[in-house]
Amino acid sequence: MTAFTPTIPATSVSSWTGPVDAPTTQERMLDQFLKGVERRALRMAELATMNRDEALDLVQDAMFGFVRHYAAKPAQEWAPLFYRVLDSRLNDWHRRRTVRSRWLAVFTRTPEDEETDEIAQAPDLADPGPLLRLAGTEAARDIDAALSRLPLRQRQAFLLRVWEGLDVADTASAMRCSEGSVKTHLSRAMASLRRALEDHA
């Protein structure tokens, strides 16, 4: 696990703020911590939702939940606890979307019955996708696509273990499952990604 080591900036509190509004040491540590994980959290949420606005909402919910419930915990425990909250939000989002899809499937016509709207189905040329936007490489696009195709639990296991660098125990804590389940999810994720990405390496 990449231990979070808060670096508190030696900023002096402006005189106009006064002692009442001055951020405490813990608030500064929380700010630094959230600043350190927010981008990766957003990318995780974006890979799950494939929608930036929804991903931002989920990350904001996760920040609120984390600060409300776990801010008083020791800083060393913050990373797995934050990802536990985010993982919970992602699971809720996935569950809601599944239920909504089932209801929509019942009450809406099948695609074969509908007239094809060529304009609606055309790709948005102004938004080439998060990874293409930054790297512009075929490999980055394939990585993005391969990760998006993974089941939620496998993707979370891969991202938390390989990208975020949590150890097995912390990943299990974040995903609220056993360490054996983490290993299983990770193994399957690695196998899927290996097939999809090995050619690029």
Partner: peptide, 29 residues
Amino acid sequence: QARSALDESARSLDAATLSRLNQARHAAL
């Protein structure tokens, strides 16, 4: 390679997104 691409994608988020993340963080605190 995957880790590098993910890092790069997180580093180069656009300004509007970073602003919303900043607002979310301050609201949470």
